[in-house]
Design a protein around this nucleic acid. Structure first.
Length: 598
RNA sequence: GGGGAGUUAGUUCAGCUGGUUAGAACGCCGGCCUGUCACGCCGGAGGUCACGGGUUCAAGUCCCGUACUCCUCGCCA
């Protein structure tokens, strides 16, 4: 038997044809004298009928069929006459089977192979090969394949070369934690699995391959999340002789093409550009979801200007200690019940907040239901109302204290409220795709723990030329040519224009307090490379998994990765990571020290 | 690493205030059935109540611990 059609293909136009279909038994309805089978392959479902009058032998065998048997059938396409099933794509026809081959029987499956998930994630992952038979996963992985193909086509057509870089590299400090691989032939030494091809791709530029790309696995030993896996895929690219806008153009063109070909959606370019500072001020993070409002209002200066006279010791203390005060307005139309407000406070605490101060505006702008209302000066209250644009009936939500915490809590609160209040248009029903670039972030961040400036991204990002004088005097003021592309609240890619000038590079190292010798020890090969006529260059890496997750509407990265890992980094199907034989460890010159229990 | 939720038949779940032999549906096994498409009907098998302690005359149920899964914060240049 040779397959002639797939199970999603046959229509009324095929009636009378002799066909051969292969697939799995999705369902059986055995009437004794007539056996109906829904046969499934990755393209769809087709009803197959076995009757003694059609073929006695095939009918005899069909009684033994059970769910998920893998079979092949031969037969004639027939109209279902009055019995058409409008719910099925192939519902007008059926195949009247003249022969049946059972390729393989199936034991009862641990969960039903149906569109709707009705089992635990644990079981799905342990029997991933069965989970993959489900239609939604087949559809999402099919889309993923198309995105891959389109990406390659587009980048090759745009003059990029697809080049490969090593996974086994040298450990370099900073950034994400690496997976380490012991070297058998070099006792006591380790490779690091590449967290990204960052350094290599810059070396491609020095090597003269002025447009490089790669669809590549990256490895990071950090916490696993809904949108993070220990191994994931990037569309990585780098270009020589370019400015930021050139990189934007390539990425916008790519995303535009993918959205059009895969989703049939016209994405407008250029994308909106949002300065990092503005994003933090209005949304509390650098990956804002622009599909709804609920913007933040920063009140730090207002409170600071009035000093202790503002009348609210909690707020004054927050700013006095260098903290931040922010508010969000919940319009009267979206009023929350007391119980809902309390739940909101619980949510805020879940993000690390100590509490969630609230104030409801009365008819003349007075505050009620608020711990702040008792002592606040009328003057500060009016100023805050005005800054927030708050009207009677509106609810103000406050956070104050350490800046990073206020931002995190307020950013989470904004998204949480939007979901709760239904402010986010669902994709598919008039939904929106809000692409944007977040640009001009600071080059350095102040690290409280080590009491020094650290690279906000990496130490090879090019500062803005006009900020170069501040490298020595005010490092916090230096902005850089780094950019993130954001879609509906997810960072889907990030990159930068790199430093190619060794002189500026050494100034950056010195601002970071990294001595020349240490820089040489860690990044010597890159610093050397920059000395031999390195071209100006820059690039970006897109998170392929996130991209596909968003494009397919998947709830989790795990749904667009064929064989994902759990939160603890385990593969429940293979049992990785697993034990190894002591002799293997000996060969690797590695000894295990178990952590103390408890 | 912190916080939260969960774990009962192959699967999804129920199981009250601790009390006789832990139930249902689907699946599985056997039988019947020629127009079903969640086919129907009759019968049957199937349980270390995640694991380990404890309280009690008695624990699926209460307490402590462990494992695993998910959510969330930290972390993720």
């Amino acid at each position: 038997m040779k397959r002639t059609h797939n199970c999603g293909q046959l229509t009324a136009a095929d009636v009378g044809k002799q066909v051969v279909l292969f697939g799995w038994v999705q369902n059986r309805r055995d009437h004794g004298g007539a056996v109906f089978i829904d046969l499934r392959d990755r393209e769809g479902l087709t009803q197959v009928v076995f009757e003694p009058d059609i073929d006695a032998e095939a009918h005899g065998q069909a009684g033994a069929l059970r769910l998920e048997f893998c079979i092949g059938i031969q037969g004639t396409v027939a109209s279902r006459g009055a019995n058409i099933n409008p719910k099925m794509k192939t519902g007008e026809i059926e195949v009247r089977a003249t022969a049946l081959t059972i390729f393989n029987r199936s034991e009862p499956v641990p969960f039903p192979i149906e569109d709707a998930v009705d089992t635990t994630e644990e079981k799905r992952l342990a029997f991933r090969y069965l989970d993959l038979r489900r239609r939604p996963l087949q559809a999402m992985l099919t889309q993923r394949s198309r995105v891959n193909t389109l990406t390659r086509q587009y980048l090759v057509d745009t003059g990029f070369l697809e080049l490969e870089t090593p996974f086994l590299g040298r450990y370099t400090p900073g950034g994400a934690r690496n997976f380490l691989v012991p070297s058998r032939t070099n006792p006591g030494k380790f490779y690091a699995l590449a967290e990204s091809p960052q350094l290599y791709k810059q070396l491609f530029m020095v090597g003269g391959f002025d447009r490089y790309f790669q669809i590549v696995k990256c490895f990071r030993d950090e916490g696993v999340r809904v949108d993070r896996q220990p191994e994931f895929t990037q569309v990585d690219l780098e270009m020589s002789f370019v400015a930021q806008e050139d990189v934007f153009g390539v990425v916008e063109g790519l995303l535009q093409k993918v959205w059009k070909e895969v989703l049939g959606v016209e994405v407008k370019t250029p994308f909106r550009r949002l300065p990092f500072d503005e994003s933090m001020r209005r949304f509390g993070n650098d990956k804002p979801d622009m599909r709804f409002g609920l913007e933040h209002v920063e009140l730090t200066q207002l409170v600071k200007a009035r000093g202790p006279d503002g009348g609210v010791p909690m707020l004054w203390e927050a700013v006095e200690q260098g903290g931040m005060v922010k508010a969000m307005v919940l319009p009267a139309a979206q009023a929350l019940s007391r119980a809902e407000s309390d739940k909101l406070e619980e949510f805020a605490k879940g993000s690390g907040a100590r509490g969630l101060a609230r104030a409801k505006l009365g008819e003349s702008g007075e505050w009620t239901q608020s711990p702040l209302s008792k002592t606040i000066s009328a003057e500060l209250r009016v100023a805050i109302n005005q800054a927030c644009g708050a009207k009677p009936g509106d609810l103000l939500l406050f956070q104050f204290g350490r800046e990073a915490l206020v931002q995190t809590v307020m950013a989470n609160l904004r998204v949480h409220l939007a979901k709760k209040l239904g402010l986010i248009p669902e994709v598919g029903s008039g939904g929106r795709w809000e692409f944007l670039w977040v640009v001009d972030p600071p080059l350095f961040e102040w690290d409280e723990e080590s009491r020094r400036w650290v690279a906000a991204h990496h130490a090879f990002t090019r500062p803005h030329d006009e900020d170069l004088p501040f490298l020595k005097t005010e490092p916090g003021r230096v902005k850089c040519h780094r950019y993130d592309v954001v879609l509906n609240g997810f960072e889907i890619g990030g990159g930068s224009i790199r430093l190619h000038d060794p002189k500026v590079q050494s100034e950056v190292f010195s601002a970071l307090g990294i001595p020349e010798a240490e820089a040489r020890e860690k990044f010597g090969f890159l610093l050397d490379a920059l000395k031999f006529g390195a071209p100006p260059h820059g690039g970006i890496a897109l998170g392929m998994d996130r991209l596909v997750m968003l494009a397919t509407g998947a709830d989790s990265l795990r749904d667009v990765i064929p064989f994902p890992k759990t939160k603890t980094g385990a593969d429940l199907m293979t049992g990785a990571p697993g034990d190894v034989d002591p002799s293997q460890l000996e060969e690797l010159h590695v000894r295990i020290v178990h952590p103390p229990k408890g």
